[in-house]
């Protein structure tokens, strides 16, 4: 098992920093904490918030990235959510979308169910698994400086890109975005497709 390193990054600071540069990027968030993080960083019509379908965030991003090859797609999700859809790393590695980046906000916990430990605190290295699946760029981030150097990879490096960011378990207030699935999808589709959203 890997030696324990000290984790200092705060999830809200990390997510706010990442989305600050968002421009026209499309963001899919995985159920639970990353959906709250994205809401806390500022609601946006180009955010698609998942409140369910655990394990489906990365592949939702894949379907979107393939449908919109001219747009950058970033999936922000948690370690527990990613682990539940771990096979999707192989699916994305083979599909090899150049415009897709997966960013795991990894607190090594199931945050919505009582902060039980996930596998990532017990030696499972998600970035190594993504590398093994054929992702073009993978890394694990532990420091503020490394967050800065990872951001251009999330936005620009030819994908698929996988960045796992280790964050601490400090308390953050709950910030909830809209939760009506039909409203979220209609707003997102209108932002992406314009009038064609209602064909």
């Amino acid at each position: 098992m890997a030696a324990k390193k000290k984790i200092t990054l705060n999830r809200r600071n990390v997510v706010s920093r990442i989305v600050r540069d968002r421009g026209h990027v499309l963001i899919v968030t995985g159920l639970g904490s990353t959906t709250w993080d994205a809401a806390a960083a500022g609601d946006h019509p180009n955010n698609f918030y998942l409140w369910g379908g655990m394990g489906g965030a990365a592949v939702t991003g894949l379907g979107l990235a393939r449908a919109q090859p001219g747009r950058r797609v970033i999936v922000l999700t948690g370690d527990g959510e990613m682990l539940m859809g771990i096979g999707s790393l192989a699916t994305i590695g083979v599909a090899a979308p150049p415009n897709l980046a997966i960013c795991v906000i990894d607190n090594q916990r199931y945050g919505e169910t009582g902060m039980q430990e996930t596998h990532t605190g017990h030696g499972v290295d998600l970035a190594a698994m993504a590398a093994g699946a054929g992702f073009a760029h993978t890394e694990t981030v532990w420091t503020k400086k490394d967050v800065e150097s990872a951001i251009p990879h999330l936005y620009e490096t030819e994908g698929p890109v996988f960045v796992d960011i280790k964050v601490n378990t400090d308390y953050v207030p709950m910030v909830l975005p809209m939760r009506d699935g039909t409203a979220i999808r209609s707003r997102f589709r209108e932002a992406v497709l314009g009038d064609r959203a209602f064909d």
């Binding site: 489906g56 379907g63 393939r66 449908a67 919109q68 747009r71 999808r185 959203a197």
Partner: peptide
């Protein structure tokens, strides 16, 4: 036609949602 081989079927459900969010039928 863009094809995606899946490791398990539920991935295809999420993929279909993502594709349609991006304006493509699957």
């Amino acid at each position: 036609i863009k094809t995606t081989r899946l490791t398990t079927e539920e991935e295809g459900i999420a993929l279909a949602l993502g594709a349609w969010l991006g304006g493509e039928r699957s």
